[in-house]
Computed example of a mutant assay.
Amino acid sequence: MQHTQKTEKVGMIILPSILGSKSSSVTEDPQIQRTRKILLIILGVCFVFSVLSTITVISGTAVPNRMQEAQRGAQIGQCITSVLLYGLGL
């Protein structure tokens, strides 16, 4: 029994170092900047609509019965909650 050693060719790939390459910042990416701007515009529009609806509900006319009074209180609560959430950017 004779064992023969086979030589295999091994190729090496040298990749550039990740540490040496310039890392692009997330804030410098124009696509991310555009997406942020669009989201801020949408958030601003929603905030304005929620403030207007809060003003409309609060300045409503007198309520003739208790059932509508309870609904009005719920509407005011919903409007104030939406103003707070949109104001915080949620």
Rank of each mutant, 00 (worst) to 15 (best):
A74P: 01
I55N: 07
R66T: 06
Q31L: 11
G60T: 07
T54Q: 07
L52V: 12
L52M: 08
A70G: 03
T56D: 14
I41H: 13
L19H: 09
K9T: 15
S82L: 04
A74K: 01
G77Y: 02
R36L: 15
L85S: 01
N65G: 05
I58K: 07
G87H: 01
I14D: 12
I76S: 04
R34W: 11
I58M: 08
L90N: 00
I76L: 04
L52P: 03
L85V: 00
L52C: 10
R36H: 14
V51N: 02
S21F: 00
I14L: 11
G44W: 09
S82H: 02
I18L: 12
C79W: 00
L40Q: 14
P30Q: 01
M1N: 01
A62H: 08
A62S: 13
T81A: 10
L52N: 08
K9D: 09
S17I: 05
R34K: 15
E28C: 06
M1P: 03
L52G: 08
S25H: 09
Q75W: 09
P16D: 12
T27H: 06
R72S: 05
M12D: 07
G11Y: 10
G20N: 14
S23E: 02
G89A: 07
R66H: 03
T56M: 13
S21Y: 04
G11N: 13
S82F: 04
S23K: 14
R36Y: 12
Q75Y: 03
V48W: 10
Q75K: 08
E8C: 02
S21G: 03
R36S: 13
I38V: 14
Q2T: 05
K9Q: 11
G73P: 01
K37M: 14
A74V: 08
I55C: 14
V45K: 09
F49G: 09
D29H: 12
Q71V: 09
G89Y: 04
S59E: 08
Q78P: 00
Q75D: 09
A74M: 06
Y86F: 13
M1C: 02
L84K: 02
R66P: 00
G73M: 05
V83L: 00
I42M: 11
G44C: 10
P30S: 04
S21L: 04
G20Y: 12
G73E: 06
G77N: 06
V57A: 13
D29N: 15
Q33H: 06
M67K: 05
M67V: 06
K6A: 07
E69I: 00
Y86W: 10
I80S: 02
S50F: 00
G60S: 11
F47Y: 12
T54Y: 11
Q5K: 04
S25K: 12
T7N: 12
T56N: 15
E8T: 01
C79Q: 04
R72Y: 03
T54H: 02
M67F: 11
K9S: 10
K9F: 06
I14P: 07
K37Q: 15
F49K: 08
S53C: 07
S53M: 09
L19N: 15
L85K: 00
T54M: 09
I14S: 13
A70V: 06
T27L: 11
I55V: 15
S23W: 05
R36Q: 12
V63H: 03
I76Y: 01
A62D: 14
A70W: 06
L19D: 10
V48G: 03
G87P: 05
G11D: 13
Q78C: 05
